[in-house]
């Protein structure tokens, strides 16, 4: 009798287990299947397509071997694209981090209205790049735009900022920094709030000044955050698209065209799907390398 009860109890548990496993697979299906079909499969597709000449509309495909990659590395425009992307990265990453860090230091205090201030700094991150790009085009308007008017005060001659080769890229970088620094700020703020107050108190007892607190406590302790933001900033820089599309369309004379912009143009305007895929694969490799460094750094320095 007692044995029978125990058996039945075990059976009941085993049945529960089996049903748990069945449900588990059933319930992750609507998440895992789309990820496989709409994320993993396209990566494989891009790799495959990059070795072909492909026309999506007539659906004709010819093998291209490595011609698309050879084309990329031999192509003057691709070199320009890489140069633009490097320039953008060199401007955007340090600036967005520096501005975000400064904002975090400014707003890391308990004063009235602090959450309103943080919210206001952060708002540009959430808004549509296209909409704010249009607003900034108006700010950069040559004759009556606010940028021209402000610079006139300090004696700079107004010009068509977004259409001249020397100012288009800095303008795009400036707007990108404006759009992103709120996010950097919030991540730095979270980092700052993770530093125990006692460290600062101890240093103050030892007579450390403001700058020394920053230099010897804040900077070193925020290093992981800085590294993370550095990598994420580079990954974002490699993918700039919306802003360039709306503000300059890659111009003037390809001065601000970026990798994703070139992928878009080649695929959807010039119908060079194979070549566009080759560029997408190169972009993917670059992002994968950066992600690897990020992962490597954090799996070695942080305990989760």
């Amino acid at each position: 009798m007692a044995v029978g009860t125990a058996n039945r109890f075990q059976e009941f548990r085993a049945e529960l287990r089996r049903s748990e496993v069945r449900w588990a697979y059933a319930l992750i299906l609507p998440a895992v299947l789309p990820l496989l079909v709409f994320t993993v499969l396209p990566v494989l597709g891009a790799i495959g397509l990059s070795f072909t000449y492909f026309d999506a509309f007539s659906a004709t495909m010819r093998s291209a071997g490595t011609a698309n990659y050879a084309e990329a590395f031999g192509n003057e425009l691709f070199r320009i694209t890489i140069r633009n992307t490097v320039q953008f990265t060199l401007g955007f990453v340090p600036l967005s981090m520096a501005v975000g860090f400064t904002a975090a230091i400014l707003l890391n205090r308990r004063i009235r209205g602090i959450s309103f201030l943080r919210g206001a700094y952060y708002l540009p991150v959430l808004t549509s790049t296209i909409a704010m790009g249009i607003a900034w085009m108006w700010l950069f308007q040559p004759q009556v735009g606010l940028v021209s008017l402000a610079l006139k005060v300090i004696g700079v001659t107004p010009k068509d900022w977004l259409n001249s080769p020397f100012t288009a890229m800095p303008a795009v970088i400036g707007v990108a920094v404006w759009k992103a620094f709120g996010g950097t700020m919030l991540i730095y703020l979270a980092g700052l709030q993770g530093i125990p107050e006692t460290y600062y108190d101890a240093a103050k007892v030892d007579g450390a000044g403001r700058w020394q607190l920053l230099r010897f406590i804040t900077f070193p302790l925020l290093r992981p955050v800085t590294f993370y933001l550095f990598i994420i900033g580079m990954i974002d820089s490699l993918q700039v698209f919306d802003l360039v599309m709306i503000m300059t369309e890659g111009g003037p004379a390809f001065r601000t065209t970026t990798i994703v912009h070139q992928i878009y143009l080649n695929a959807f305007k010039f119908n060079q799907m194979g070549y566009a895929s080759a560029m997408a694969v190169l972009l993917f490799i670059a992002i994968a390398v950066l992600t690897y460094f990020n992962w490597k750094f954090f799996s070695s320095s942080l305990e989760y």
């Binding site: 396209p42 891009a46 397509l49 799907m273 992600t291």
Partner: peptide
């Protein structure tokens, strides 16, 4: 792990093959 791995694949890499798909 597979789900986490897909997090690093950005839309700017997949939009072209996804369009064809």
């Amino acid at each position: 792990g597979l789900v986490l791995a897909t997090m690093m694949i950005p839309g700017s890499v997949t939009f072209l093959p996804l369009f064809i798909l």
